[in-house]
Design a protein around this nucleic acid. Structure first.
Lengths: 226, 226
DNA sequence: AAATGTCTTCAGCTTGCCTTCAGGTTCACA
DNA sequence: TGTGAACCTGAAGGCAAGCTGAAGACATTT
């Protein structure tokens, strides 16, 4: 059924030469391009040098574990799809990976055909999603790069403010209750009292204009129309 | 990083009552809504009746296997994310599922925490996809996002108005007595006098048109046809 | 250790939604 | 067609929800 079949640039982060070679061959056979990195430092260099469409990340590497790497990647605002490769067949590790922002995982030893299927799924899923740059009136928001400019001037946002703005912008019409926003800012179990959300909304409005976020009394907030 | 928490409507297609119940409970505990179907025919009915944000599909069902069902779904252009549940721990089956258009799979027996993580991943991944809309004449209602538009124009509803509209729309044929509606707006024991419901219905009609809600004298209200 | 900057809490103020009430209108049935 | 009951709807006060300035807690940097 599915047409699929977009050529992608894949970054393979894997230190085992035998496995890595086999995987790289398979990906090339599927018609994609591959770069290999054996260490996280190399991987970082590769990512700095050029963007990739997919990252295959081994969790056990000589210079550090993969999950912090992934977390840092996501914290930087990078949304490149990541598939984790792991020998750890433990539920908790896989969950940690997914929660750190991975899109999928494969437990070693995995079948090469399965790898192809997974890559194909990611390719289909992300087909036609270029780098998002949102404009709202005179405000420009680069979701990938985490940059906000207003009338050409760069506006500095704090972490919380950014998280809020990102939520609103990525679902431009949706209404968010305060509870939803709290859940979003505070990775669960950090129960937060008081009116934090209100305060951050207030700050955002101060920086980017009153109209940016509309409050609907008794329900929540939503992105303003412009 | 982000643990986004958007409430989703999940369709669980699973004929095992024990497993199904546990899964449904877990999903509800995560703050999502669940509908269950034990057979593919029921599942089809549910899908025809209302859109879902995620489908959990057991591959072994009394009235047919899941993969053809999934293929048919995709052939119809439905892009609702699907996670396959399967007892078949065979690579070929998982690949077949992914190639039929599934987004992920879980092999039974699976950990409920892992289920949550997977659902969370899907929720995150698809954040930004528009929610399915209910249409009534020229009115569009996004139940998940709490958005109402009429002829493309966004209509602002207050909390009470939205609660009413939501009730009517989610049960399009049912007749609601005023007592039922009061109970629905005022989490019990907040006994309310007077004609509050009438007033809010009036406001709704003013905003969205006379025909939206039909009153059946002496009985209650119901959603208008169209 | 001081400085800087962010996040949270608190408190007083502002705002607008909800309810109530009252008078008008419609409907069912005689 | 007349009558009563049910329903509609405009207006207004009260009160809870939301806004925002300020200050303390905490982490990070110089």
């Amino acid at each position: 059924m599915q047409t699929a079949g977009v050529k992608m640039r894949v970054l393979l982060i894997e230190d085992d030469n035998v496995l890595g070679g086999a995987v790289a061959d398979q990906i090339r056979a599927d018609g994609h391009g591959v770069d290999r990195a054996a260490r996280l430092a190399d991987a970082q260099d590769a990512l700095d040098a050029q963007p990739f469409d997919l990252i295959l990340l081994d969790l056990m590497l000589p210079d550090g574990r993969g999950i912090p790497f992934l977390k840092a990647l996501r914290a930087r605002g990078d949304v490149t799809p990541v598939i984790i490769l792991t020998a750890l067949d433990q539920v908790s590790d896989r969950i940690a990976g997914l929660q750190a922002g991975a899109d999928d995982y494969l437990v070693k030893p995995f079948d090469l055909a399965e790898l192809s299927a997974r890559i194909g799924a990611v390719s289909r899923r992300y087909a036609g999603n270029p780098n998002p740059l949102v404009e709202l009136g005179d405000i420009q928001i680069d979701l990938g790069g985490r940059v906000v400019t207003q009338a050409g001037r760069l506006v500095a946002l704090t972490a919380r403010e950014w998280a809020l703005l990102e939520a609103f912008v990525s679902r431009p019409t949706q209404l968010f209750t305060k509870a939803q926003l709290e859940e979003l800012l505070y990775s669960f179990d950090d129960s937060v009292g008081s009116n934090t959300i209100e305060v951050h909304v207030s700050h955002l409005r101060k920086k980017l204009g009153k109209g940016l976020i509309v409050t609907e009394r008794g329900m929540g907030y939503r992105l303003g129309q412009t």
